[in-house]
Design a binder for these strands. Structure first.
Length: 748
DNA sequence: GAGCACTGC
């Protein structure tokens, strides 16, 4: 059951009596469930939405005496879910939240010595395991929402499986109980993973949802960009022909959603007008966009019921599939696409792209229509598209993401054989090797794969290794105050607001430029630091944000992150192993030199025109993103470092600053010392004796090296089509490139 | 001359 479901249930049940709790589908299974947990060390419990497993099972186990020799811990993939469920259960158990029933999420620990049932995020349990690998406080660990396959839950699966397989845990093995709770579909795979452990099925209570294939998208339209129009058409048809009931539309991003809402708004008015002329009554459409970067108060609007005579139509991203639940939805319109981040380990690049959803995800989306009554799901795609283009299951996060932090965590838990670690879905070996390489490069592990003193310091920070390395460098100089706010700013959502209206858009751009100018318009990192400091120092930080088109919500969380990082650092600085160095130079140089020590794998040098070439051994061609303050200043630049790469119409680097070659000269050879494939021995916990290869700085190309040529070379050099393919698909989607055209190597 | 889905420590 997802967090939203819990919220819904919360609202729903508050009005009803305890009788309703007794009538939950799970209540008839109380004794059998208790006996199953007693009998088996690991048990899988599946149940559809509304079965009550999240709120009731921990209480049953508590009543059966499982909390006598330890606490009952329940993990959730999201913060809100952990908090709202804990609230609900504390009410049901008639105790004060934080006493008998508590929760722990980042920045908010609401537990006490009396806590016997503890809800928490899976990330929190991971942190706890780092301090106590035997989880000695717990009698039962329940991993909820297992079907979502979040990165942390997947790692917890492997750790718990290993826990029961290892000989060293002795008595502890007999006392710890593990329950994995999941929606149906994935339970077979999970059961096999846990040595064919039993699966307990609780029937759900949902209503039937019929599916209509509208056949507007077929297998040949995998890269179609026209589906916003199709979605709008389906919504209008539905609105005119189907009886009352609210609509939920799934699209992929902010821009699409705004476009769809505009079209709907025009057309809905047209319908009203036409029907008025014919003197027929038709309820209007209340159109509500919904996406993550929207202000929270605006998001709340979707929870209000539509005024009488109006039909609510929520046009949302995937946020409506897991994080937020809209009540009373009777119709779902599914575009069949989702925006997904994937990682290309060969060139160390993240690609954010629109891809067809999986069949299981499509069923989840459709299910949103059957919560309060029977419903209908209109898929804009055809049955053929379903069969040919949609995979059975979504690729789990662990196979789509950079694994540096995960691998360092495993190493810190003394799991050195990171390749043969029991993964439910094993990541490709090169993902693991790339992670090891990066950890070696930032001195978190040594050549034998052992965690270094620095690595042990780094694991304490909830940051990517590169950023942690920069932070520790600054702290070793005694100047952490320059890196702490920056690390915080880089950990939160994008702080710059991009308004929808063209007028406001221009005003926002000017205000953002003003902020960049104050630090000399030459360093995006310094701009972020400046924003943090200015905002914090202002009389009213929230109105400061409004004036400068900055997300106040993002800044608020940056302030919390900075405090947390400061606390961790203060604790670690007492450690005798904490490095101490001297630095004399300007603030600007200090900042950039610290960044270099963490981001030297993200160094690029201008090769020709506005084209840069990365120095990480891949030699990828990159451009400065237009959102950077250094955009169109390329000719004045030579060496740069960047925070991240994004592949859209070109391979762009975002958040950039110029550096001097001398600052990275001694660091760059490290990038070429170890070949990824030599690391497989290290991964398997054997010694590796690689030959050290000296770095060769590529000669700067003359201006004759056109962009066209550079693209061609990138393609050959990397021998990797996926980045180019992603770019092609992007261009096709935006209608810049026609399907099947042979112009991949040409730059406009 | 773009345009970032979502979540977590």
């Amino acid at each position: 059951m997802s967090s939203g479901d819990e919220t819904r249930k919360l609202q729903h049940q508050k009005m009803s009596s305890d009788l309703d709790t007794l009538q939950l589908p799970i209540s008839g299974h109380r004794e059998k469930l208790i006996n199953a947990v007693k009998k088996y060390p690991i048990l899988i419990v599946t149940g559809e939405t509304g079965s009550g497993k999240t709120t009731q099972l921990p209480q049953y186990l508590h009543q059966a005496g499982f909390a006598k020799h330890g606490i009952i811990g329940v993990t959730q993939p999201r913060r809100v879910a952990a908090i709202t469920v804990a609230q609900r259960v504390s009410e049901e158990m008639n105790c004060q939240l934080g006493r008998g029933v508590g929760y722990q999420v980042r920045f908010d620990d609401c537990t006490s010595e009396d806590t016997v049932i503890k809800y928490m995020t899976d990330g929190c349990l991971m942190r706890e395991i780092l301090a106590d690998s035997k989880l000695s406080r717990y009698s039962v660990v329940i991993l909820d929402e297992a079907h979502e396959r979040s990165l942390n839950t997947d790692i917890l699966f492997g750790l718990l499986k290993q826990f029961f397989h290892r000989k060293c845990h002795g008595k502890r093995k007999a006392t710890l109980k593990v329950v994995v709770m999941s929606a149906t579909l994935e339970e077979k795979k999970l059961s096999e993973f846990f040595d064919s452990c039993p699966v307990y099925v609780i029937p759900g209570r949902t209503y039937p949802v019929s599916t209509v294939f509208c056949n507007l998208i077929g297998p040949e339209d995998k890269e179609s960009s026209a589906y916003v129009k199709d979605v709008v058409k389906v919504v209008i048809d539905l609105h005119t022909n189907e009886p009352a009931g609210d609509i939920l539309v799934f699209l992929t991003g902010q821009i699409e959603i705004e476009k769809a809402c505009d079209l709907l708004y025009q057309k809905a008015e047209a319908i009203d007008y036409n029907y008025d002329m014919q003197d027929r009554s038709l309820e209007g459409l209340l159109i509500l966009p919904l996406y993550g970067s929207m202000p929270t108060e605006q998001q709340r609007k979707i929870f209000q019921p539509a005024p009488p005579g109006l039909r609510k139509c929520v046009v949302a991203t995937n946020i409506a599939a897991t994080s937020l639940t809209v009540n009373g939805i009777r119709y779902v319109v599914d575009s069949g696409f989702v925006k997904q981040l994937s990682y290309n380990s060969r060139v160390s690049m993240h690609i954010l792209e629109v891809v067809p959803i999986s069949k299981s995800e499509a069923l989840q989306r459709a299910g949103r229509a059957g919560r309060t009554s029977s419903g209908k799901c209109f898929c804009i795609y055809s049955k053929e598209f379903w069969k040919k283009c949609m995979p059975e299951f979504t690729v789990p996060e662990i196979r789509r993401t950079s694994l540096t932090s995960v691998i360092l965590t495993l190493k810190c838990l003394e799991i050195h054989d990171v390749i043969r670690f029991p993964y439910v879905d094993k990541p490709e070996e090169r993902f693991i090797l790339e992670a090891l390489k990066q950890l070696y490069q930032c001195d978190a592990i040594d050549r034998r794969g052992q965690v270094t003193t620095l690595g042990k310091l780094m694991i304490e920070f909830p940051l990517p290794p590169s950023l942690t390395r920069a932070l520790i460098k600054a702290a070793s100089f005694g100047h952490e105050s320059i890196l702490l706010p920056l690390a915080a700013m880089l950990s939160v959502e994008n702080v710059f607001i991009r308004p929808g209206h063209p007028d406001k858009q221009q005003a926002a751009i000017l205000k953002h430029q003003e902020l960049a100018t104050k630090v000399g318009s030459s360093n995006d990192f310094a701009t972020l630091l400046h924003i943090f400091e200015e905002c914090k120092a202002s009389v009213s930080p929230s109105s400061w944000c409004r004036d400068y088109f900055i997300h106040w919500r993002a800044l608020k969380s940056a302030f919390s992150v900075e405090t947390q990082l400061q606390d961790i650092l203060t604790r670690l600085k007492n450690n005798k192993d904490f490095p101490v160095e001297q630095f004399s130079g300007s603030r600007s140089e200090l900042l950039r030199r610290c960044l270099c020590s963490g981001y030297f794998m993200n160094v690029a040098r201008r090769s020709a025109g506005k084209v840069f070439c990365t120095m990480d051994g891949h030699g990828s061609v990159v451009h400065i993103h237009p959102s950077s303050t250094l955009f169109e200043q390329e000719f004045q630049l030579d060496w740069i470092i960047f925070h991240e790469v994004i592949v859209t119409s070109k391979v762009y680097v975002r958040i950039v600053c110029p550096i001097r070659y001398e600052w990275v000269k001694d660091l760059l050879p490290k990038l070429h010392e170890i070949d990824v494939y030599d690391l497989s021995n290290v991964a398997r916990h054997e010694m590796a004796e690689e030959e050290v290869v000296k770095l060769e700085i590529p000669e700067r190309k003359d201006s004759a090296d056109s962009q066209e040529g550079a693209w061609g070379k990138l393609q050959k050099r990397n021998d990797d089509r996926s980045i180019m393919d992603a770019r092609e698909r992007y261009l096709q989607r935006r209608g810049i490139r026609k399907k099947g055209s042979e112009t991949a190597n040409q730059e406009p």
